[in-house]
């Protein structure tokens, strides 16, 4: 409907637009994740950049492969770049680069392309990539390379992990130096990591999850830019704090950590800010968003403190992704003028 030499401009509604476009949101989220990437690089050294780079290369490559014949060129909206970046930040620093690359390929392929592309997927692509890696290489995905400040001396910025450059599918029996994450220490050995470390981020763990304060900073930026629905993070964090507080102060203070520890450790903040708020895979209605958030919070605490794994944020979000079509259906608003039960 492009008119040549328009004297009268014809246009359909909407006429007032907020200027919120997919590339803008993606750019905002990428910007918000950059401090976390910087912290990961400072904390773990150059491996952080290599792992994130490999995951991003896998994601973008797969996106190009599956959408190269489409005229609208979805590669340019930055969503695949963001998926790769977020996936990379959820991986352990010592992971072989080819696995990170494979995670990106699977994340985009299985998590997005087969659903028909951006906006149609029901699971968070980055988390699908990570869940796939966790199922396929459980040991690698739970071996945490210590950060640079772990030993007596600060390790060099350019050091690599023993397996970083391992060849694909080759098994090399090397002694890998590992350090437990604060959550693992709490769950299996009963020692609490100092709150100062977990807030600033000088602990072991996945690349992007260690520095609580920088993730919150990114979250506040996204909040200011209104890139996500504030109800989801509020509901998740509120639920976790209340649930853990009840367990800690009401039941067994030695078995359950304080709410502040729960809040600042593991992937909780990272998952809350960057994964659970994904507008595509979370419910659209305000009421649905609250139910979704509460569900994630409850599942996180259940898996962390009653399950076999030290951390469950990824699974909690994926499980609630699974349930979000149902949530959206149940809280559908009543059609005006119809009876109370006629909506479904």
């Amino acid at each position: 409907m492009t008119q040549r030499d328009p004297r009268l401009v014809l246009q359909t509604s909407p006429f007032l637009q907020t200027g919120v476009t997919t590339p803008r949101i993606m750019r905002d989220v990428i910007l918000a994740a950059l401090p976390t990437l910087a912290a990961a690089t400072w904390n773990f050294g150059v491996v952080a950049l290599l792992v994130v780079g490999s995951a991003t290369a896998g994601a973008v490559g797969m996106e190009w492969l599956t959408t190269r014949k489409r005229p609208d060129n979805p590669l340019l909206d930055g969503s695949a770049l963001l998926t790769g970046l977020l996936l990379g930040l959820t991986l352990p620093p010592g992971i072989p680069l080819w696995m990170a690359f494979l995670g990106g390929v699977v994340g985009i392929g299985l998590g997005k392309a087969i659903w028909g592309g951006l906006g149609q997927n029901l699971f968070n692509p980055a988390l699908i990539g990570r869940a796939f890696l966790q199922a396929a290489f459980p040991i690698t995905l739970t071996s945490w390379m210590p950060n640079r400040f772990h030993g007596e001396q600060v390790a060099g910025f350019w050091r690599l992990g023993e397996q970083t450059l391992a060849a694909p599918l080759m098994r090399r029996d090397v002694e890998v130096v590992t350090a437990a994450t604060p959550l693992g220490l709490q769950k299996f050995e009963g020692t609490l990591t100092d709150l100062g470390h977990t807030v600033i981020g000088t602990t072991g763990g996945s690349l992007g999850e260690t520095s609580a304060i920088l993730i919150v900073l990114g979250g506040l930026y996204l909040l200011w830019r209104r890139a996500f629905d504030w109800r989801i993070p509020a509901a998740i964090l509120g639920t976790v704090v209340v649930f853990v507080a009840v367990l800690h102060y009401g039941f067994d203070a030695s078995r359950f950590p304080t709410p502040w520890f729960s809040l600042t450790t593991g992937g909780l903040l990272f998952g809350t800010v960057f994964m659970a708020t994904d507008p595509v895979t979370s419910p659209t209605s305000p009421k649905g968003a609250v139910i979704f958030g509460v569900g994630v919070g409850v599942l996180v605490v259940l898996i962390r403190h009653f399950g076999g794994l030290p951390e469950g944020v990824m699974y909690a979000i994926l499980l609630m992704n699974t349930a979000s079509p149902l949530i959206d259906r149940t809280v559908q608003s009543r059609v005006f003028g119809r009876g109370r039960k006629a909506a479904s």
Binding site: A135, F306, G307, L309, Y315, L319
Partner: peptide, 11 residues
């Protein structure tokens, strides 16, 4: 895949 997160629950 998502249900794998329940491994070991309440055991």
């Amino acid at each position: 895949l998502a249900f794998m997160g329940f491994a070991g629950l309440f055991s």
